[in-house]
């Protein structure tokens, strides 16, 4: 039982990371109907910005965090203008390829600027964790879970109770109609890119003290987060959260009770099962086409 509790905590912690990155996938998908394959690189770039500010320049942690978020907002803006906007009238395929290209560019640009050596980023707290009965709670995982809950609550309030949130929703549901109603569609999409770059960045900064800061950190998380969005139901915010958490818990328990080397296999086995038996995901609705 003690072991199961420990595994459950770790599974939720790692699942929350997948969920945060998956949120970024979902937001951009809803606004533009394309998958942003550079979402993982947003996490990596933010983590490196934190290393530059907090470790190399020895700035206060909170200030480094704000600078990193500022950098991510700028990156989201540039990403929209350089990667999505020029191709916005094309089909989804060129845009997806464009995001893959951007992902490779971001990884290699960071490699060229910072070098290949993995970096250590200290966590927010001095204490690495606390022992509660038989379970060790890693302080960074506790923070990740807390931030995920806050962000989900914020997102709900933002989209359901603010005018700009409703405009964003309208844009994601039908761009033409939104435009006819006077909603500045291009600006809404710009805000979506900035917001998802921020969320990806927060995920990267939070996970960096656990997984270290490396060029590959984004891609390895993004792959699982992508699977989480499919399991949850592509385009659904609640689905991304549930999918991420489910994936984290399944792979942790699968590794502990069935096989460690096949840990990644469990995550993708679940993905394949969903694609076969419930392709719309947990929360997705079946889309039927008229003959």
């Amino acid at each position: 039982m003690d072991i199961a509790l420990q595994l459950l905590f770790t599974g939720i912690g790692i699942g929350a990371v997948y969920a945060l990155v998956a949120l970024g996938f979902v937001l951009i998908f809803r606004a533009t109907n394309v998958v942003n394959f550079a979402q993982g690189e947003f996490s990596m770039v933010a983590a490196f910005l934190m290393v530059v500010c907090a470790v190399d320049l020895e700035l206060p942690y909170w200030l480094s965090f704000l600078i990193a978020l500022g950098g991510m907002a700028l990156l989201g803006m540039i990403f929209n203008l350089g990667v999505y906007y020029p191709l916005r009238h094309r089909s989804f395929l060129p845009v997806i390829i464009s995001t893959i290209g951007a992902s490779i560019f971001l990884a290699n640009a960071t490699l060229a600027l910072y070098g290949p050596q993995p970096q250590v980023l200290p966590g927010w707290f001095e204490t690495p964790g606390i022992q509660v009965g038989p379970v060790y709670l890693d302080s960074q995982y506790l923070l990740i879970i807390a931030v995920t809950i806050v962000l989900v609550a914020f997102q709900y309030w933002f989209f359901e109770h603010t005018l700009i949130g409703k405009k964003l929703q309208a844009t994601s549901q039908d761009k033409e109609m939104a435009s006819l109603l006077g909603i500045p569609v291009a600006r809404m999409i710009m805000i979506t890119f900035i917001y998802s770059a921020l969320i990806g960045g927060i995920a990267g900064i939070l996970v960096a003290p656990v997984l270290f800061v490396s060029i590959q950190m984004g891609s390895s998380i993004a792959l699982k987060a992508f699977a989480a969005t499919i399991i949850g139901g592509f385009g659904d915010v609640a689905g991304a959260i549930i999918g991420g958490l489910a994936l984290g818990i399944i792979e942790t328990f699968g590794a502990a009770y069935i096989s460690v080397p096949y840990k990644d296999g469990f995550a993708f086995l679940v993905l394949v099962l969903f694609l076969i038996f419930r392709p719309q995901g947990i929360f997705g609705e079946r889309v039927a086409e008229k003959a």
Binding site: I3, T10, I14, Q216, T252, A255, A256, V260, Y262, K263
Partner: peptide
């Protein structure tokens, strides 16, 4: 005797197995 796949993000199951 516990194997693991490279580039794992979490080793909790391995560590718990060693502990047990």
């Amino acid at each position: 005797d516990q194997g693991y796949a490279n580039q794992s993000q979490d080793f909790t199951p391995v560590v718990l197995a060693v502990k047990q």
